[in-house]
């Protein structure tokens, strides 16, 4: 094992992990904090990728800037989806299995619509920094990985500050523990869940832009991430954003080292093996509730 190869694998892994963190943040909020099994989340990430793609092709704008501009639209979409989910399922206490079917359906609908509009060809964005690399000594940072990683960490920091320092954020953390007790604090738990779910969906806009900067995208790209995001979310511990970040970085580094030294096909096996091992020792995940 050469030392410089290892260090570069770790660097690449950290950047990959930071991207995974962005992809998982939405699930970490909806599944981890609100008990909503939003299996369609990766589908909305791909929707974010295509929005970044179409605006980038038309106007040449940076995908991340496009994603930020699209945040309110994703937030609004999240509010609508939560309202439908709440009225049709959650309100009647039928959220677990039927809710899962609902989100599974949403995933397919999103994918089919993207297929019909854009076709099944790979799409990618045009950004000047995509081919570039930042080199420090023998350490190499591909810019197309570095930019999403840095923005992702910033987004995570922002979310964590929002959740731990604001009244609404604290209520989001409280809502799955005891929604009725939240009413006694003059807070409407349904409103809190709607806000939190909308935020979780808005993260898909950012993650989508990151994804299409890192690699070309097809409508079904989201599927590869379903298993991984839930694995990271559970590994980090339900309801903990810092846990999600640590787990995402860990999985990123392990996948990167494994694919550097043993080949990419081993990567998922090793990371899921780690998940099972961790859960055997710590059933609530790294920082879980």
């Amino acid at each position: 094992m050469q030392f410089d190869l290892l260090i570069n694998a770790i660097i690449a892994g950290l950047m990959l992990g930071a991207f995974y963190a962005a992809v998982t943040s939405g699930i970490s909020i909806s599944f981890g904090m609100l008990d909503i099994v939003n299996i369609a989340h990766p589908g909305f990430i791909i929707l974010g990728s295509y929005i970044a793609y179409i605006v980038n092709v038309q106007l040449g704008a940076d995908p991340i800037v496009i994603a930020i501009v699209a945040l309110p639209a994703f937030y609004a979409l999240g509010s609508i989806i939560y309202e439908i989910y709440y009225r049709s399922f959650e309100k009647h206490g039928q959220d677990s299995l039927r809710g899962l079917a609902f989100f599974f359906g949403l995933l397919f609908v999103t994918e089919v619509v993207l297929n019909m509009v854009f076709g099944v060809d790979y799409r990618s964005v045009n950004v000047p920094y995509i081919g570039g690399s930042l080199t420090i000594g023998w350490m190499e940072f591909p810019i197309r990985m570095l930019v999403p990683a840095v923005v992702s960490i910033l987004m995570f920091g922002g979310l964590q500050i929002y959740l731990s320092r604001t009244f609404i954020g604290r209520a989001v953390m409280a809502v799955s523990q005891d929604p009725q007790a939240l009413q006694l604090m003059a807070v409407d738990p349904i409103r809190i869940k709607r806000i939190a779910f909308s935020i979780s969906l808005a993260t898909a806009s950012m993650a989508g832009a990151f994804l299409i900067i890192i690699q070309p995208v097809i409508p079904s790209s989201g599927r590869e991430y379903i298993g991984r995001v839930f694995a990271i979310c559970v590994l980090g511990g339900l309801g903990s954003l810092p846990g999600t970040l640590i787990a995402a970085l860990l999985i990123g580094v392990i996948e990167s080292i494994t694919s550097t030294f043993y080949g990419p096909s081993w990567a998922p096996a090793v990371s899921f093996g780690l998940l099972l091992l961790t859960l055997a020792v710590r059933p609530s995940g790294l920082l879980g509730r």
Binding site: F167, R170, A171, M173, A174, Q177, D178, Q180, A181, L182, L184, M185, A186, V187, G239, R289
Partner: peptide
């Protein structure tokens, strides 16, 4: 304000967070 039977605190949040939740309105 009601102090409910069984207290109904938010067990996974800190004392301070529980108090601040009380001041949400």
């Amino acid at each position: 304000a009601l102090v409910p039977e069984g207290r109904r605190l938010f067990p996974r949040q800190t004392v301070e967070e529980n108090l601040l939740l009380g001041a949400s309105r």
